[in-house]
Design a protein around this nucleic acid. Structure first.
Length: 586
RNA sequence: GCCAGUGUAGCUCAGUGGUAGAGCAACUGAUUCGUAAUCAGUAGGUCGGAGGUUCGAAUCCUCUCGCUGGCUCCA
């Protein structure tokens, strides 16, 4: 994404354009709402924003008038000029303008010489670069306004952030806005309940998901596939309980450092804790006997349901919930096995994700942060192993220096969906903290105790989240092998029911998720209904089909495909499932 | 949690101080039909919840819950 920002035909990048657009926004706001203080206004992934401090909230009407004012300023084509002040001059300048936030920024970040950019009577403390004049920022749109903390600090003042986007051409802007609209249409929070896949209910509580039969059917397919893949990769499955004595979580450090814990439950004067993670349980399985170097690596997987108290404001459909099932696994291995285990995990993750129809990946390696647990030596060795594993798999990755979690370096894989949006799914993390806290060990060849490496990994992330991503990726049009209802049989009249029910029985025996629409409705009505429900394959049966033991096949979004011999179409369906084909081609 | 917005029938929405409405879906009846909507009828809401103002509240106010866009955090 970022790389596409460079456009050789232009003197400036898309980021520069958007940064200038954010100045245009601030300029317009100060024109229309004098006395407003400006915070910061950078370009971001899909556009730009600017933060403002103002008593009155901005309304959507305000947004419109601000956008109009921005267009006016753009039309004036005012030159944008860089001005260098001494730090003291700059502070004085912004103090006079009443821009106290800017004064603070300059005091903190300003060097001897302070760079500012001016367009007309608007001036901003800014490193740049910017486009040469406001007229070059033509194709933009303000999108939303929301709250944001000054420097992300919750105890600090809250500002109002106005988001917008900008592009080089009218067409690109229109395309982007169209994409946003498309994203809205295929929002899993809309499609999910519409397709009867899942629901939420305020009587239940926020962030808790009810999987309806159809959603559960798709989930079962995902889980079955997941288990088989793990079996092939040499994993064993384990199951663990949903609660454990508080002591376990004290040992793991969760009670002290993890802020999403639900309050503990007390039973027989003992405190129990709902689990926010599966790791301690897997560790306890490890510790249930003395481990030898000969046993390693141990690969244990679990679809483990965890509960985390997420703050109300962050809950979001299936993507951010309070109860969810991680496709979790822990690998315990020796140091000489580390690289190989990482390599296998990466390759497995990509294989699994590709099967679900994802082709574009961004891979990140995060290294040691300032505060960390474990030894530097272990970190260095592990980070090197992760790097080598990525290289061995010939994977392009970027290094997020110092962005690792405190307990170990990690590899994250983000997938790009059909709308080119990025989602983090796979995470592969070394954990030096828990292996120490629980004092994990194995007996080595030398008869001494050694500390194993512990790898924590999830491929899909969580089933809830992944399902949400799948719904949006496919716009609800799941590939045949994943579809909740794979086939719908539509008998034209009552006299075709015997034949239709016979087909249903046969299909179900072959484990094809089949339904029958035996309502006394016209065929056209039933077809419309089936198409709305996004059933991939519709089998219409009437006199002709009963007579010739055929079915008329209709493929979702493709239309009528004509008559097929039933055995023939059954074989094709089984093949679609076996191959996990993403498209139906008859 | 914070800022802002929002909540009327299963769904999409109308109704801004004076007796709660439409379309679709559901249900009943008729229709037995060839590739995206057959016709007619019936039922369905203490207007998210609680409190208040008022002769009178879906409508105004307060609190609260859910949802939406973000911040922060994260699978």
């Amino acid at each position: 994404m970022q790389k596409k920002n460079k456009d050789k035909n232009r003197a400036f990048s898309l980021d520069t354009l958007r940064h200038s657009a954010s100045h245009l926004l601030a300029h317009a706001v100060l024109d229309l709402f004098p006395g407003t203080q400006t915070g910061i206004g950078p370009a971001v992934e899909d556009g730009f924003y600017y933060d403002f401090l103002r008593e009155e909230p901005f309304t959507s009407d305000d947004l419109e008038s601000i956008e109009k004012r921005m267009k006016d300023i753009s039309a004036q084509d005012t030159p944008i000029e860089k001005i260098i002040f001494s730090k003291q001059e700059a502070i004085e300048k912004f103090r006079q303008l009443g821009q106290d936030l800017k004064v603070k920024l300059i005091q903190e970040k300003g060097e001897e010489e302070v760079s500012c950019f001016q367009q007309g009577d608007f001036i901003d403390f800014c490193l740049g670069p910017h486009v040469p004049s406001t007229g070059l920022v033509k194709h933009f749109k303000l999108l939303s306004v929301s709250g944001a903390y000054w420097k992300g600090d919750e105890s600090g003042p809250q500002l109002q952030r106005i988001y917008g986007t900008a592009f080089f051409t009218k067409q690109e802007l229109a395309d982007h806005l169209k994409m946003l609209e498309e994203a809205k249409k295929r929002d899993h929070r809309k499609l999910g309940p519409e397709m009867d896949l899942f629901s939420t209910d305020e009587k239940l509580g926020g962030g808790l998901i009810l999987w309806h039969p159809k959603g559960a059917a798709a989930r079962a397919v995902i889980e079955d596939f997941w288990r088989k893949e793990h079996f092939k990769e040499g994993y064993d499955l384990i199951y663990s309980p949903h609660i454990a004595k508080l002591k376990v979580w004290e040992t793991s450090g969760h009670t002290e450092f993890y802020d999403a814990l639900y309050p503990s439950l007390i039973s027989d004067n003992v405190e129990y804790q709902l689990k926010p993670m599966n790791c301690p349980f897997h560790i306890m399985v490890y510790q249930s006997s003395q481990r030898s170097y000969r046993e390693l690596p141990l690969r244990w997987a679990e679809l483990g349901t965890v509960y985390r108290y997420e703050r109300g404001g962050v809950l979001h459909g299936l993507l951010r919930v309070r109860g969810f099932t991680q496709d979790d696994a822990h690998i315990f291995c020796r140091s000489d096995q580390l690289e190989e285990e990482i390599r296998r995990t990466i390759s497995m993750a990509l294989r699994v994700l590709r099967t679900f129809g994802f082709e574009d990946f961004d891979v990140y390696l995060s290294t040691r942060p300032e505060k960390f647990s474990g030894s530097k030596g272990d970190w260095d060795q592990a980070t090197e192993a992760l790097k080598k594993a990525l290289e061995a798999e010939k994977i392009n990755f970027s290094v997020d220096e110092g962005e690792g979690v405190f307990y170990g370096p990690k590899i994250d894989i983000k997938i790009k969906d059909a709308l080119k949006r990025s989602w983090q799914c796979t995470t592969i993390q070394l954990d030096f903290n828990l292996s120490e806290k629980f004092d994990l060990s194995y007996v080595g060849e030398d008869g001494e105790f050694h500390r194993p490496f512990m790898i924590h990994r999830a491929l899909l992330g969580s089933l809830e989240r992944f399902f949400g991503i799948l719904i949006e990726h496919y716009n609800g049009n799941f590939p045949f092998w994943l579809a909740p209802v794979q086939t719908l049989i539509i008998p034209i009249a009552d006299r075709h029911h015997d034949y239709a029910f016979g087909l249903k029985k046969e299909l179900r025996e072959k484990e094809i998720r089949t339904e029958i629409d035996a309502r006394r409705e016209k065929m056209g009505y039933k077809i419309r209904d089936a198409e709305k429900n996004k059933v991939p394959l519709i089998l219409v049966v009437g006199d002709r089909e009963v007579e010739s033991e055929t079915v008329s096949v209709r493929i979702h979004t493709q239309g009528d495909k004509g008559a097929f011999n039933f055995k023939e179409i059954l074989a094709k369906m089984l093949k679609l499932i076996k191959n996990k084909d993403l498209e139906i081609n008859l």
